[in-house]
Design a protein around this nucleic acid. Structure first.
Length: 484
RNA sequence: GGUCCCGUCGUUCAACCGGUUAGGACAUCGGCCUUUCACGCCGACAACACGGGUUCGAAUCCCGUCGGGAUCACCA
């Protein structure tokens, strides 16, 4: 020991900052601080096709909002930078090259088509899945010649074909897995970018990460990482796999945006205080001791120990979060309470957004309150005559539930949140579902405003924000199933 | 399906490496407080997945079964 503890959170900027990211970040942060170590932020943007431009900044904003600040990262820099993987391409290429020279890896010239066909074949045969070593034995000279000739290739790690991989997990003990079921993982893609596996191991080593605290879903691929450390001749970090947050559905599946709000932005819009959210996240798996449930991150740092972490997949339960948040609300000073409310809703910026939407509908100043009420809360009640409009004449519950869920998905899928994009997405959806415009727009209007009469639909949705809109569309989809 | 991980009230977290009427919290249901609601307080309901072992004694240790989850990409 004696080495400074260093942990990291390594999110991929592919969308809205995820509650699971905050969850894992919290434990990384707390563990590092407990041991007087460093917590770093590294952006894993090696997938050029999925990265979203504004996502990285949103991630940083959200983590800061929660009070989880990093000692080194893309914004603050640090001695082991850069902290953005897209800026480290040469490093990965050099390391892949090194593995090639050592005979620990090889070039693979298989096309995506061939690999897809192979997978399909294996799936049908119900046999062993994974790469068939097709290119593993290509002689070095031939491999070099084909590469030089411009033939596209990936670089794969040579895994042992037999034997057992052993990994020590701090929380779970020894985890063994036979090499026979592990194939030769691609390390460097044909576009020259590394896969997670390579980038992650290289960076963790170069950044001197001592403890890898990540989600359980990584357990199956950890043997590949262990093998990589061996291939490089490096010392592996301590592995710690946290349980996965779960949906409140029957099976407790891994938390997902189709079933549960997962965006940190949603919780902020829902009026949750950051200290309550982070406290709640801590409760997922961790017990403070003495039945204490309300505590700060600083207090958690004091007492933290992985022995106080349990492994069952915790269900993310909004009820308890809201109760906890209420506790924090009551503790707030009037000054701070006022500040918070002003910051989120009662501010000129937000008013400026809403006023144009309702001005010509107003007969007096007080109408503003009535007509914009739905912009200031999260969940709407659909009982009553207006709610019944979620189900247009001649349409079935199933059809409309499907359409509303489709709308929720469409809202998520669009690149940037704008009035024009919202409208285009909804028109496309109506077409796709075979609905008349009003058969879709009225239900959507009711879903997001709770009323049949509302300010302009797309502008209202835009002002409401993506997350609340998606939440309401999902809720309306559930509600419509209960309609007569 | 193969492999791996997990398994205490509906949910969450306890019960130190075997001995408890299995505890706290959320939710639910009662009651008190209160013009109402909320808060607060009091109370009720409610769990060791199942089957074998080991042991004087098992929620706790071992094995099996069942259940759930994750994973099997040129995504992370």
């Amino acid at each position: 020991m004696g080495r400074t503890v260093r942990t990291r959170i390594a999110p991929s900027p592919t969308g809205d900052p995820h509650v699971g990211t905050a969850y894992i970040a919290l434990f990384n942060y707390v563990f590092a601080k407990k041991h007087g170590g460093d917590f770093l932020l590294r952006i894993e943007d090696t997938d050029q096709t999925r990265a979203r431009s504004d996502s990285e900044e949103a991630i940083m904003t959200s983590l800061k909002w929660l009070g989880l600040s990093w000692d080194e990262g893309p914004d603050v820099g640090g001695p082991k930078g850069p902290y953005r993987q897209s800026e480290r391409r040469e490093i990965y290429q050099a390391h892949a090259e090194q593995l090639l020279e050592r005979g620990e890896a090889y070039r693979c010239f298989c096309t995506p088509d061939r690999l897809a066909a192979l997978r399909e074949e294996q799936r049908l045969a119900k046999g062993r899945m994974g790469y068939d070593y097709h290119c593993r034995e290509i002689p070095a000279e031939e491999s070099a010649r084909r590469a030089a000739a411009g033939e596209p290739f990936t670089i794969r790690l040579k895994m042992p074909k037999e034997g057992t991989s052993v990994m020590q997990d701090l929380l779970r003990g020894e985890v063994r897995r036979s090499f026979e079921e592990l194939d030769d993982q691609v390390l460097l893609k044909s576009d020259g970018f590394p896969t997670y596996h390579l980038a992650n191991v290289v960076d963790d080593h170069l950044m001197e990460i001592t403890h890898v605290i990540r989600a359980e879903e990584w357990i199956p691929s950890t043997p590949k990482h262990v093998r990589l450390y061996e291939a490089f001749g490096w010392e592996a970090p301590v592995w710690i796999h946290m349980p996965l947050l779960r949906n409140p559905d029957k099976n407790k599946s891994k938390i997902s945006k189709r079933k549960n709000p997962v965006s940190l932005a949603f919780y902020k819009e829902a009026g949750i205080l950051p200290e309550a959210l982070v406290n709640f996240l801590a409760l997922m798996g961790f017990s403070f001791g003495d039945d204490m449930e309300k505590f700060t991150v600083a207090q958690m740092v004091e007492v933290f120990d992985f022995e106080k972490v349990s492994l069952g997949g915790p269900v993310f339960d909004l009820d308890k979060l809201n109760w906890l948040n209420g506790l924090y609300m009551r503790d707030l000073s009037e000054e701070r309470l006022l500040e918070e409310i002003q910051a989120i809703w009662l501010n000129p910026t937000y008013f400026a957004k809403l006023l144009p939407l309702v001005q010509n509908r107003m007969k007096n100043l007080n109408d503003f309150i009535d007509q914009t009420a739905f912009f200031y809360n999260v969940e709407l009640a659909y009982e009553g005559a207006d709610g019944a409009a979620l189900l247009p004449k001649g349409k079935t519950q199933k059809e409309m539930a499907d359409a509303l869920m489709g709308a929720a998905d469409a809202m998520d899928a669009m690149e940037s949140w704008s009035v024009a994009n919202i409208e285009a997405a909804l028109r496309a959806l109506a077409e796709e579902k075979g609905l008349k415009i009003k058969e879709l727009f009225m239900p959507v209007r009711v879903a997001i405003s709770g009323r049949k009469a509302s300010p302009p639909l797309f502008e209202s949705m835009e002002a409401l924000g993506r997350e609340r809109v998606r939440f309401r569309l999902r809720k309306a989809a559930e509600y419509v199933k209960t309609l007569p």
